[in-house]
């Protein structure tokens, strides 16, 4: 059971919708697997196609792009099939997006966002109100009710990022797609959130697709790592192996840049 796959991508190619795939591919030949209870890390330079890969999983690519090749199998159903995606999105696979400030509707309160999402997935808001409060408290919000009544533009990026995490927790998703989930957080909250994701991964058997620039986040959470470069996966290995013996030049450069910044050996940090 624990090694069943929640997400498997095979030979994914994303290209501009109105041009031939061969010369407009932004992402090509990406294959990856996320297992229940495991985290797959995705690292790579800015613009290497990490976010596009995440969006393709949810079938949320922008209109001018499309999946020109390959397939995405999400929780035993292929994306693009007749499977009603709105039953999977949010309920079974949640996403934490980049730039949280722009992701909320400014004319509705944070509480409205949470409640409408619960309602969309047939969860009774009145019955769950205490769970909402306790989840927010768990994420470090001392006054949950104030947060619920606030409008998105009154909160910081880090706070909104935690609201996104709270939705994933509330809906008890099977797959969490986290696109740079900790960029806007201070280290204390960051470590708390990572601890929480780690716990869910183990206790609730949740699979995680973790996109980040931060190698220490990878070291803490991920089981497998894929390195993306210019739209392709150039290296993929278990995390300990990747840190100890990077194969590709680009990966080596990435690692040594990190070491020169933080001056520590990451392989010591990798969990067993």
């Amino acid at each position: 059971m624990s090694c069943a796959s929640v997400l498997s991508i095979r030979d994914l190619q994303i290209s501009l919708a109105n041009q031939s795939p061969s010369n407009s591919a932004l992402v090509s030949d990406v294959s990856l697997e996320v297992m229940r209870g495991k985290a797959t890390g995705l690292i790579g330079a800015s613009g290497s196609g990490k976010s596009l890969t995440c969006l393709a999983v949810m079938d949320l690519l922008p209109k001018n792009l499309h999946c020109s090749k390959g397939e995405v199998e999400l929780i035993r159903g292929t994306v693009g099939d007749k499977t009603p995606l709105c039953c999977i999105r949010g309920k079974r696979a949640a996403m934490i997006m980049q730039n949280p400030v722009s992701c909320f509707d400014p004319v509705f309160t944070v509480g409205y966002h949470l409640k409408e999402t619960l309602r969309a997935h047939k969860l009774d808001v009145a019955k769950n109100i205490n769970r909402i409060r306790s989840t927010l408290a768990e994420l470090g919000f001392q006054q949950p009710d104030e947060i619920l009544a606030a409008y998105p533009f009154q909160l910081s990026g880090g706070m909104l990022q935690r609201i996104m995490v709270s939705l994933a927790l509330l809906l008890e998703v099977e797959l969490l797609i986290a696109d740079e989930p900790t960029t806007d957080l201070d280290v204390i909250v960051q470590s708390r959130i990572l601890g929480l994701i780690d716990r869910l991964k183990k206790e609730k058997n949740m699979g995680v697709l973790l996109v980040t620039h931060d190698l220490s986040v990878i070291a803490r959470l991920a089981d497998n790592v894929l390195v993306m470069h210019k739209g392709r996966v150039i290296e993929s290995a278990p995390v300990a192996k990747l840190f100890a013996h990077p194969r590709e030049e680009y990966t080596k450069a990435l690692l040594s840049a990190h070491f020169s910044l933080y001056g520590q050996d990451l392989s010591g940090e990798v969990h067993s």
Binding site: M58, C86, R89, G90, A94, M95, C103, D105, E116, A120
Partner: peptide
């Protein structure tokens, strides 16, 4: 085409909503 609409879809809201 805003990101908040993208996130609304990612949260699983129906197109109608």
């Amino acid at each position: 085409h805003t990101r908040s609409v993208l996130y609304a879809r990612a949260r699983g809201l129906r197109e109608r909503t």
